[in-house]
């Protein structure tokens, strides 16, 4: 009994520490500079949010959403067909191409900045969302393919082999038979890719200099640098950056655990 209480107490303390920072973002975002540290809990206000939107923060939310959604769609399309090829087909240079793609996971992004900057400058893609979409798809592809190949391996081959024998056109097999079965895997991959892109800072910093094109992380940090003492507004901006990923992730809990089990840790 004492043992049980000790475990429960430990668990509650650990999880309080774990969720405290995110919780604090939301609490602080409803407080003003004056009330931030008072213990009077009756004075919550939406002023921070109103001021943020008045200063045009909505545009950055839109930019981020637009870039991330397009990038996730391209990532999913590319990685589903690639994962199908790796999982179900035999072809020349298979291990070499799979290995090269996987090594993308280990690649230091920082060394891409200069060459990509020069390439984008030549193509006229600087200060253009195309360059961001290109980078975001490229950085999320290796891990997405890894997750999806792992997931596909857990699906019996008989399912799609039967369809092949029925003479179903090959592309249709992927979209009509394979994709629906691997939906949990696709959802996890999409959520993972979205989070990666949504919080990306380095490429946005390097390739977007026009204010009206900037993404949320970039603007959040710029805002933080300029208004270090206006914690209320900084926290409101942080809260707005966090809400979409929370809304996306929490309902997917079951899928994420499932995707992790079958994907990366299959023993």
């Amino acid at each position: 009994m004492v043992y049980e209480i000790a475990i429960l107490l430990l668990a509650f303390i650990v999880f309080l520490i774990i969720i405290y920072p995110t919780l604090w973002i939301f609490i602080a975002s409803f407080k003003t500079e004056e009330t931030l540290f008072s213990n009077d809990h009756s004075i919550y206000t939406l002023d921070n949010y109103f001021e943020l939107f008045e200063s045009g923060f909505g545009l950055f939310i839109f930019n981020s959403f637009y870039i991330c959604l397009v990038s996730v769609l391209i990532t999913i399309f590319s990685s589903v067909i690639a994962a199908y090829a790796f999982s179900r087909r035999r072809f020349r240079f298979k291990i070499f191409s799979f290995g090269s793609i996987m090594l993308g996971q280990t690649f230091p992004w920082i060394i891409l900045v200069t060459p990509m900057f020069i390439l984008f400058a030549k193509l006229g893609f600087l200060n253009n969302h195309i360059s961001m979409i290109f980078c975001y798809v490229a950085v999320s592809l290796p891990f997405s393919i890894y997750l999806l190949v792992g997931y596909l391996e857990s699906i019996p081959r008989e399912l799609d082999e039967a369809a092949t024998m029925d003479g179903c056109p090959q592309f249709q097999i992927i979209w009509k038979i394979i994709a629906p079965i691997m939906l949990p895997g696709i959802i996890v991959t999409a959520a993972y890719a979205f989070l990666l892109m949504w919080s990306e800072y380095l490429f946005a910093l390097a390739f977007l200099t026009k204010t009206n094109l900037k993404t949320m992380p970039l603007e959040l940090y710029a805002f933080f640098g300029e208004h270090t003492t206006q914690w209320g507004q900084v926290m409101a901006a942080s809260a707005l950056t966090t809400i979409p990923t929370l809304v996306l992730f929490l309902p997917l809990q079951k899928f994420i655990s499932e995707g992790l089990t079958t994907g990366s840790v299959k023993n």
Partner: peptide, 8 residues
Amino acid sequence: PWATPSIV
């Protein structure tokens, strides 16, 4: 914490 973007 995982769903909290690293920048945040």
